[in-house]
Structure formats: C-alpha cells, structure tokens
Design a protein around this nucleic acid. Sequence first.
RNA 1: CGGGCUGUAGUAUACCGGCAGUACGCAUGCAUGGGGUGCAUGUAGACCGGGUUCAAUUCCCGGCAGCCCGACCA
Length: 425
Amino acid sequence: MRQSKLFFKTQKEYPKDEISLNARLLIRANFIDKLMAGVYSFLPLGWRVHKKIENIIREEINAIAGQEVFLPALQPKTIWEKTGRWDKMEPPLFKFQDQHEKDLALGSTHEEVITDLVGRFVNSYRDLPLYLYQIQNKFRNEIRSTGGLLRVREFLMKDLYSFHTSSEDLDIYYQKVIGAYKKIFNRCGFDAKIAEASSGSIGGDVSNEFMMLCDTGEDKIFYCAKCDWAINEEKLDKKTLEKCPTRLPDGRECGGKILNGQAIENGHVFKLKTKYSEKLGAYFIDKDGNRKPIIMGCYGIGLGRLMASAVEAHNDAFGIIWPEEIAPFDIHLLEIGKTTKPLRIFTEKIYQELEKASLEVLYDDREGVFAGEKFTDADLIGIPWRLVVSEKTHIAKKVELKRRGQEKTEILNLEEAIKKIKLKL
RNA sequence: CGGGCUGUAGUAUACCGGCAGUACGCAUGCAUGGGGUGCAUGUAGACCGGGUUCAAUUCCCGGCAGCCCGACCA
C-alpha cells in the first residue's frame, strides 16, 4: 500500500479529553475516529488490524469445528420475553418500535435467536453436538462508555454457541474452547489468565473470563505466578488464597504463589446448561426416546476490545508496537530525503521485491515530507519492521532495517533483510 | 442514571463585559532534505437557546455534547 494514497492522517497532538491510552494512541495514529461516546469508525489502518484479529479467531474456532453463521441484529420482543430478559437486560438492551409499533431490540447478545433457531432444526441426539458461531455487531445501551475501545456501545463480537446431549460432552467442548482461546490470545500478543468468574445476566453456573493483566483494567484478579489460573475478585468471597489450587495432569496441586493485579476481560465463556433451551423450547429426543432440553455453552470475544488491549499492552513513548500477527502491515518502507528519479526507481524495486516475497508493506512514498515526520509517523503507527531507503543506502545498494521497539539499526542488502524478517515472522 | 470537570478555526490552546490572538494543519511560492525544516502570503473559529447589560465568546439559567468516578461488562 502506498502511503500517499492511504486514507489516513496522523495527528500531531493527542486528543484532548481522552485519558485512556488506547484511545489516545489509536485516534492520534488514525486507526479509529470517534463519532460519539462509545461509537467509533475504523479507518483503513485500524480496520486491517481488526480484520487480522477476526481472521485469527475464525481460524481457531473453525479448528474446533465451529460453523460460521450470521444472525440478525434486529430482534423481536417476543423471544426476549420468553427468556425473561426483555426487562432484565435493560440496560444494556437497545429497544425501540417499528412503523407498526411493534417492539424490537438491537441484539446485545444472541442466546435467544440461536436457541430459537437450533430448537426448530434439531430434533434428535443424532443432530448433536453442534457448534455455531458468528462475528457480528452487538449493540449495548451502556450506562457509560469508557476507556476508548474498551467499553463501547456498538462492537463486533465473536460469539460461539455449543449444543450437547450431556453435561459431560459440554465439559469436554468447554475445555476445547479454552484451548482455542489461549491460542487466539497468544497470537494477538499476550498471555491471558483464565479466571473463575460470576456469570452475570448471561447466566449458567460456571463461567471463566480471559483476563489480560493491565493497570488500566476494570477488574481485579488474583492469579497464579506459575500457571494461567486466576479468580476474579468478585468471585472470591473473602476467603484468602495462599497457593494456586489448580490440579496438574499428574494430580498434584500446582501450588504457585498467588499475586493480584488489575486486568481487562477479553473473553468470557459460560456453561449455560439448559437455561435457554428450556425457555425457548429447544429439545431433542435421546437414544432411549426421552425428550430432553439441549445442553448449551456460549463463548464470546470482543474484537475491538482485544485490539485496544493489545495497544494497552504494547506501546512506548513514541507510539504503538503491534504484535506481528495483528500488525496492519509487516513492514513500513520509508523513502527519505529528497525524491530523485534514481532513488525512486531503487525504492520502487524494493517495494516490488517485498510484495513478491509475500510481505505486507506500507510504503511511505510521500514526496516533500521530511525524514523526521516519516520516522515519527512510523513509530506512532507501530508496524513491526521499519525499512529505510535513502540516497545513502541507494549508493551502497543496501537498506536499513530496524525493529519497532528496539534500538539497533542494521544495514544490509535486501535479500538478507527479507530473510531476517521472515525468520522473525 | 447519580456525582465531578469541560465546551474558542480541522487539531492544540491564549486573552477578554467593548472589532477574538498564537502554534500546528490546509493552500500558494521560494528555499530545504536522516528525527514533525525555514521564510512569505492566504484560509478558517466562540456548541445551541434564553436571561442580565448600552454592549455577552466572557456573567447567570436551561438544553445539548465530551471526559472522569460510580454500575456483576466482550
């Protein structure tokens, strides 16, 4: 992508009135734009990051047999009344009426819709288990939006729903989802702690939150220094914890030291059991001919929040430092100094070679922009590798390679640089 | 929703009860070309409504909007 053509303009100042680090960086670096409190546009750079997160999630959920669907955001009051959540979810349910004064809601979550759907299609134990997910906009009439992208009123969520014939089968799949989630969060650049949590308005008796340690997080957790076990403070009814209670595969206790800190909740998984299936009439006939409610689980990840968390976790005084897998591009190619024809030909060739090597390149080909501004922009945007070309390197037939967040600059030829980048990627 | 703070060019800000200033941006020109370059010219602004006053961007009231604290939230 040629930067001169990119719909994008970094700002010289941080936005006033934004305290939240992710909002300050993402707005200033022009990844997102705020339309109103808790409602943001994703601009080309930001949308690329968002898409990468989306694809990572899709890959990992497909890998555990998830089938992607797309459910409506516009939902009738009737199904919400069946579960008793029409009144209970206000807020955060957005409610309004259509032309015919029929009550509607914008989906803040999709248990009702999916359970209604599955209930009408699943009749037999032979149809189960079933794993359906979507990546779709959720609308939440939050009392207050906070922390930039951390808590917004409209956002894309990956929500997966599983349907089983038994609790045992749910338990097995629940663990599979936890495994997939670990991979997703690792690929997005951080280790998540898996916290025992309370279920809130979603319900069910067991739930786990995927927590990223971060001083600006809204939740306080107690976590193990050795493994990924944790517990949300709200779940910890005053009993003190000294050692990690997790059972290792060999049956011993983990016994790791317990620490505490603030964390951001990036995902939440629930064992719903039959809470929704009973109310919405989602039953199946088992092997012995008995009619039983379907056993359910549900599993959510907020994509924008995940993106914000990555920014909160990876930055320095100069800007964002994207983890490789979710960076908007692999390489930021800068041509600096006065643009002369021979230099431009040299840089264009490098740009082509990089793309030929299947690398994603943002090419700062802007003319008349000073080196300092290009460097400052590059640091702010935070693409993992910076490749600089100038009259100096042109004469030497070399490029300068620097990794965002590290001091060292290397001067080498293009083939060596590509090799190096590919090894790290 | 309750509490607190705040609304001045695209952005960040200054001053003021009496014609609204600066920096960046943007446009044009010349110079320049390795960490937001220099000079010149131009461009663009008081959230909305009411009140007090000879006069309101400034003071008062009401809206609206933003941020922050509270709310079992992906």
